[in-house]
Simulated assay, not measured.
Amino acid sequence: MNIPELKIGNLIAKVPIVQGGMGVGVSLSNLAAAVANCGAIGVISGVEPGFDLENYHKDKFQANIDGLTYHIRRAKKLAPKGIIGVNIMTALTNFEEMVKVAVKEKVDIIFSGAGMPMKLPELVKDSITKIAPIVSSGKVAKLICKQWDRKHNYLPDAIVVEGPEAGGHLGFSVDALEDKENFSLKSLVQEVLEAIKPFEEKYNKKIPIIAGGGLYDAKDIGEILKAGASGVQMATRFVPTYECDASEAFKQAYIDAKEEDIIIIKSPVGMPGRAIKNSFIESVYKNGKPKDIKCVNCLKPCNPKETLYCIADALIQAQRGNLERGFAFAGAKVYKINKITSVKEIIDELMEGLRNY
């Protein structure tokens, strides 16, 4: 197979892979720069990027602005010719402020899911920053295109389609997650392609589709590109790498995970999420809320009085390796990973496999 370049406006990635944004602190400047230096698109997570700064618990708002600014600048310095993106969830309490920071720092592209980013076009107006909403259906893709067309005279520069086998928070019901035939990534790609056709024709513009969720090897990538996607999003595979920003204990959780350890949990934000089962998850869902956990007020849908634990705190603890006080999100194929390797080795292996696909 001839490996296609991933073109998003004037951005051209020689390797048609977007590294998924992983918070808290799993994909920061180190991982994003390493991926970008290999010709793919590296992505910094915009979820609590200031979590390890001294002023985080005193002024979380400013710490996250400082953290995102620092990691964008550092990634650009480490990968001066690479493409650097930021993933900013619409559900963040500081969504607009974080988008403004990314635009000010001239990040190449913003990926935005966990809700519909209807105001995103006006927030990036007159900037060089591209925008790509993350969707889980053709219906949502159509709705976003319709609104952006009507209100902003603008179409997405790309669309990410996340399937039900992705890690982390999922835009599907629990029933849909079990219906693998109707909600396969391939069928979702085709559904989105069909939904955006009228808008592409109106603007005489191609909207590249980037598909992710449960992709592991070159065969997986080849099948999705064949189905009509212009590129793929991969996150889980980049965690057990030397360059990943998470702790060694976090990476080891991926290596140790067996197929039966991959579970769907109900997140405090009300969405299902795919995670690696551990003692923290078992204890929380069995015994209820731990006493010493405080809410850090990171997501709009979260009600601290009703939640079993603080999702941000649990992910911060896991990132630091304190897995007795947190847990790791992961994609459905995490059990296939058995060693720590480099970002370059993974991308070389995938591209070589794709050439022979």
Rank of each mutant, 00 (worst) to 15 (best):
P4A: 05
I8F: 08
I8L: 09
I8V: 14
P16C: 12
Q19C: 01
V26W: 00
V35L: 02
V47A: 03
E54K: 11
Y56P: 02
D59L: 06
A63Y: 04
I65F: 01
A75W: 01
A75G: 07
L78P: 02
G82V: 00
I83D: 04
G85F: 00
N94Y: 11
E97N: 02
K106I: 03
I110D: 04
F111S: 00
G113I: 00
E122D: 08
I131V: 09
P133T: 06
K146V: 04
R150K: 10
E162T: 01
F183I: 09
S184F: 07
S187D: 06
V189M: 09
L193W: 10
A195K: 03
G212F: 13
L225K: 15
G231P: 10
F238Q: 15
A249N: 12
Y254S: 14
I255V: 12
A257K: 04
A257S: 12
I263Q: 11
S267T: 15
M271D: 04
S283E: 15
K289S: 12
K294M: 10
K294T: 12
K294S: 13
C302Y: 07
K305H: 11
C310L: 12
I316L: 10
L323H: 05
Y335D: 09
K336F: 05
I337Q: 04
V343N: 02
E349H: 06
R355G: 13
Y357S: 14
